[in-house]
Design a protein around this nucleic acid. Structure first.
Lengths: 362, 362
DNA sequence: TTGTACGCGTTATCAA
DNA sequence: TTGATAACGCGTACAA
């Protein structure tokens, strides 16, 4: 035997020590039924003795042509992506199926809202990619296609041939807007996250709203606007460059500034995170919610149930992750191309909205 | 040429098409200097033509004996791990160095606060592991050792031989407690996250406090208690089973219940997330902060700067991630075993604490 | 530039 | 049944 002292033990080492073939040792780990229990026990014993921790995952991947990992593409840096509590909830749903199937999770953070660098995608050791909420035309998706990796898209963008898991944003937007209209609000403002990955922050001009680069923005915000306008209400739209509480607070502060008579009595927020920020802004401004200001969120993240409980459009976040994970696995095993899921949403009325009280009434 | 229609192109395919050797194509991708520019251009051109997306990451890993990924061990499920905003901040710091060095990030979620399953660790395709805040004796760490993977520990537990990145929790605990003492508070309560991964929630008896299974709890909470007791104050300790806002709210509510004369005038919270929850509880109870109740957090997460800005112990979260990443990479390249880092903390006094007003004064 | 010996397993196919 | 043989899988790296 060659003098291989330092080297880590491999299947061969164990097989040699035992005087059996490598295949037998492999079987001991992967196909216990191909082996007598006694032999298996002997293999495991000497493996433990030699400090062999089981088949090398990389080598196994090469042989299997399976890395056993799903790669998740995020639009932005981790701090920013996780600034919205909706992400961990979704990921947790995903992780639950991933883990059950012994797959692992590779996170590919993006840059400036545009998704991961193509090189990072090219190097990712994943069998399947789940793209989470990327802007139209992200270079990362081209890289995925180039590698021929199966792809599942969550939320956006539309990618031909890729199954998608998304929610009915148009319905959600309508429900939220109708709720406020039904409560008698006419001075409504919209607070949204980015409509394009360019860092813009401020009152969005019509031109911008006409060219939104995110499907979700188009549908959700588009639906807010359509519903409101159909009722003769033309709301100002503040666009934040992301979905973080601080951004929501700043945007809401801007929308709420100005003389009381013209101040919005209701805020339609494209995410709970923004709505939670708006809640803070209301508090800053000394405005009671829902007394003087109604606020509606979107998502129904766990935090929406806190102080005061937020009226919001509930979307099944964990379910999205779970479904995306299942789609991904189905793509892997190849039984039938998975169909897209279009999940429904519902309005959850809690305590951040109330009927509009005209200024003349008591 | 063999009829390999469906198969994905490999280095060989490209080499054959070009009539050169496989090595040349490999060099074209990895060592442009070993190649004439003209040849390189030709290689890239035919690669593009054939739809070859570059060397297969898994095969490359096998040959290099490097997977190019760092594995991060989390104590709990993703939703729970991310319930504390400190995690994404740390991970972002980590991701910044990871990404710069073309490594990717594998997330290994845990179960019930005890870290990932050993099998998951055994299968992880990572060159190095970063364990984030695991309890003493987590099975995951044994699995890491078994595989002989280099390990960096963040916060806890102490693992002999593994470099560590942690903060001075004892100092932080003392600063926070002394701050309240200096403000004249005598009726102080402590609100902490788990002291053992067993799901306990409630007032922690002394017995529990004597056997804390987390290093951070031992130091941070231990320091609260030591400092307070040295001043003759013996605080009740509420233990939440995790560090989430909702848990903090519930715990604080319990601590604040009871007759006003015996109610604590100050809360020492082991994390900002818990403190933020306590803030909600105070609001629920109609208590003004800091007028009637002072609250101190720990961490200084971004949200600590919101309504009202939280007095807290600042620890360099992103820096922790960055350092851990650098340690990990150093372990990989092998230049000198990286030393442990013990980062300092500082008290940031903001607006959630104020001098104690005795009930007799105006 | 090229030849070619690895890297470490998996999985038919065979033989006993 | 139980175990062995050997052909891959796809690159990397060093000597020639």
């Amino acid at each position: 035997v060659a003098p291989r002292t330092q080297r880590k033990p491999t299947l061969d080492t164990v097989a040699a020590a035992l005087g059996v073939s490598r295949a037998t040792v492999s079987n001991a780990y992967n196909r216990p039924d191909q082996l007598s229990p006694a032999m298996r026990a002997r293999v495991m014993a000497t493996a433990a003795e030699l400090g062999y921790a089981g088949p090398d995952p990389v080598a196994r991947s090469l042989a299997t042509r399976r890395s056993g990992a799903v790669g998740v593409l995020l639009d932005d840096r981790l701090v920013r992506a996780f600034a919205d509590a909706a992400l961990p909830v979704m990921l947790d749903g995903l992780a639950s199926v991933i883990d059950r199937l012994d797959q692992s999770l590779i996170l590919l953070p993006g840059t400036a809202g545009d998704g991961p660098r193509p090189e990072a995608v090219a190097r990712a050791q994943a069998d399947v990619i789940i793209a989470n909420s990327l802007p139209d035309g992200s270079a990362a998706l081209a890289a995925v296609r180039r590698r021929g990796l199966p792809l599942v898209v969550i939320d956006q963008p539309l990618v031909s041939g890729a199954p998608m898991v998304r929610v009915d944003d148009a319905l959600g937007g309508r429900l939220a807007a109708e709720h406020l209209l039904a409560l008698g609000h006419r001075r409504v403002a919209v607070l949204t996250f980015a409509t394009a990955p360019d860092g813009f922050e401020g009152l969005a001009p019509d031109r911008r709203l006409a060219g939104m680069r995110y499907l979700v923005s188009r549908e959700r915000v588009g639906s807010y606007l359509a519903t409101l306008r159909a009722a003769g209400v033309d709301p100002p739209v503040w666009e934040a460059p992301g979905s973080a509480r601080g951004l929501g607070r700043r945007g809401a502060a801007a929308l709420l500034a100005g003389e009381p008579a013209r101040r919005p009595t209701a805020l339609l927020c494209a995410s709970d995170e923004l709505a939670l920020g708006a809640l803070e802004a209301a508090r800053d401004a000394g405005l009671s919610v829902p007394g003087e200001l109604s606020i509606v969120g979107f998502d129904d993240v766990p935090a929406a149930q806190a102080t005061p409980p937020l009226t919001t459009v509930r979307q099944p976040l964990a379910e999205k992750g779970r479904l995306a994970g299942e789609q991904a696995l189905r793509l892997l095993t190849g039984d039938r191309a998975a169909p897209s899921h279009h999940l429904t949403v519902s309005l959850v009325v809690r305590q951040s909205t109330a009927p509009h009280r005209s200024q003349h009434s008591s």
